[in-house]
Structure formats: C-alpha cells, structure tokens
Design a binder for these strands. Structure first.
Length: 307
DNA sequence: GATGTCGAAAGCAAGCAGTC
DNA sequence: GACTGCTTGCTTTCGACATC
C-alpha cells in the first residue's frame, strides 16, 4: 500500500466514481480501477460494492475512509511544517555561549532577534568554551560563541572580535590611582584568576611571569563575571573581558586598561558539514551589530577621559 | 559514468454489464 | 441499441539495480 493507492481511494470516495476520480487525479480510469483492486487485495478489505455501473462504498470502505481522512490531516500538517522549514529552518534557534557573552551580549541580541522573528523559539545555553566546542561539533546547537576553538573541534570557525582585557578592582584600591596598569604593578597583589584550562588564563599568567611578578593567587573562578563579582566584594583584583567588566563598573568597582595587552578573542562556531540556515545567519548579523555597538560604547568614555 | 536488464506503473483499446 | 462505467490484456515508459 502506498500513497497512490490512498490518493485513488480518497478521490473515488469524494468524486463518487472511478471515472470522476481519474479526472481529479489527471490519470486514466483503468489506472484508478487497478489501484483500488490492489488496495483491496493488500488490505483484505472489500472497499466498494460493484452494483451495476454504480460503486457503493461498503461499511469497511466507509470506516477506512474515516482513517484516511484522519491521516490526510496529518499530511496537511506535514505540508505546513515543510512550508515553515522552508521559511524558518527548524523554527528554533539554539545558541551556546561562554558566560562572558551569554550573560551580556547574547541576551541583547536575542531581544533584537525576537523583535524581528517573534515566531522563532530561541534557547540559550551557557557553558565553558570547551563544552561549547563540543556542543557545536555534535550539532546540539546552531551557533556557538566561545573564547577559543578546541583542537579536537570540527566546527567551522569565524572570529567575531579580539579585545584587550581590562583590570577590574574595588573602588578606592591603591592601583586605581594609575590611569594604565602594568604587570609590575600587581606584585604581591591578591589576584582572582580564571581557572586553569581557560583559554585566556595561560596568556594572563605569561604576561606576569615574563616580568617576574608574583601575584597572590588565592582564588580561582570559572567565569569572568564571577571574578568581577568577587572584586566587588573586595576580595582582590582581576583581568576581565571589557564587555563583562562594563556591567560591574560603578561606585564599588573601577576599571583601568592593562599593558601588555592580554587579548580576549571571541569566536563564532558553526556545526560542521551543514549549510547555515537563514535564521542562524540573521542572528549572526545582529550579533555582529550588537557586539560592534558595545565595543564603540566602551571606547567613548575612554576617549572622553583623555580630553 | 555509461550501459543493459528487469519490474512496476500507467495508458490504450477492447470487452462486459447495467440503465434508460 | 446507445450510453455509461468498470475490468482486463497488451504495450510503453521509466526508475532501480547490477555490471563493466
């Protein structure tokens, strides 16, 4: 039994004769006759009573027709689903982001995206860059935002940006007297560091080791935002992504540039061997716009303070 | 990738049965 | 007997599959 058998049966039931059904389906009457015979043979049902030139549906035929109509509602649903997929892909967008992006940048992008595409469901998953590499490689998510790309990752990668880390310290801290901080200034300073294994941790350590500076590494945290929160509590100083640091700037926290530059790269990760759908590309466009605007806003106060 | 073979699907034509 | 509708046999077309 295939779709043609069902189509022929349904057409005969609706049109009232094989001849009319054949016209409906743009085929020949003998073809319809054979399809109905095959359907009866395969189902073991007598679908029509041949009474002279008239075809009269049997009770079995009527019962089968009700099931066929129910199945057609499902087929119509498939048709609608196909149209939606054509327009919107799966109709769902799964984003995975590292905390520095997932807690600040991405929510703003989702807000803009929802204004354009209210019919699309967006899910945001925040985790470490390593996990984001894994999620994107395995196609669990449509887009990943991470600070580094894993060696083992098969993702397609594009760089979003690379910005210099800034120093975050409690208000009134002795280092806040300087306009720009150097690695040497951190000698003996309680430092809240990212955990080993984080993409930028090694860079930070190298910047201090190069000039022989020993910090007091008493506290480690997995995410920059947590480091900044601990700074606000007066537990030490840290280096952080400027977009993350911006959210903590205020009466309790001060931010200064740091030299030599420790760069925070941000990568966009795409699932491998998979064409990028329209929704993902639209989201990436908005992500780039929002990111550029955030960076421009970060620059403005610095320019103003130089005047 | 090109070619040959096989089987399923579909059309044409003829025949059969019922109705008017 | 003419018309209508269904069934059946024959033929053609097309796609799947195997082989080279």
């Amino acid at each position: 039994m295939n779709l043609k058998h069902i189509e022929a049966f349904r057409a005969v039931m609706l049109a009232g004769s094989m001849t009319a059904a054949a016209k409906e389906l743009f085929t020949s009457q003998p073809n319809i006759s054979r399809l109905i015979t095959q359907l009866e043979r395969e189902t073991g049902l007598l679908l029509f009573q041949r009474s002279g030139v008239r075809l009269i549906p049997t009770s079995e035929g009527n019962a089968f027709f009700r099931e066929v109509e129910r199945a057609y509602v499902g087929l119509q649903g498939l048709s609608n689903a196909a149209a939606q997929i054509k327009n919107l892909g799966s109709g769902r967008l799964r984003i995975a982001a590292m905390p520095s992006a997932g807690l600040t940048l991405v929510p703003h992008v989702i807000k803009r995206f929802q204004a354009l595409r209210p019919e699309v469901t967006v899910s945001l998953h925040v985790n470490t860059s390593g996990t984001i590499n894994h999620w994107t490689s395995s196609q669990f998510c449509d887009l990943g935002v991470a600070v580094y790309r894993s060696e083992a990752s098969t993702c397609e990668v594009e760089m979003l940006s690379e910005v210099a880390a800034v120093c975050v310290m409690p208000a009134g801290h002795r280092l806040a007297k300087k306009r720009v901080l150097k690695a040497e200034d951190f000698q003996g300073e309680p430092f809240i560091s990212l955990c080993h294994g984080d993409g930028t941790r090694a860079q930070m350590d190298e910047a201090f080791d190069r000039v022989g500076v020993e910090r007091v590494l008493a506290i480690e945290a997995q995410y920059s935002a947590i480091c900044c929160e601990m700074v606000r509590c007066g537990m030490g100083v840290t280096l952080a992504h400027p977009i993350v640091a911006r959210d903590f700037a205020g009466p309790e926290v001060e931010i200064r540039p740091f030299k030599p530059s420790v760069m925070f790269p941000t990568y966009l990760l795409f699932p491998p061997h998979q064409p990028r759908d329209r929704l993902t590309l639209e989201f990436v466009d908005l992500l780039r716009q929002e990111h550029n605007e955030l960076l421009e806003n970060l620059e403005k106060p610095r320019r103003a303070s130089r005047r």
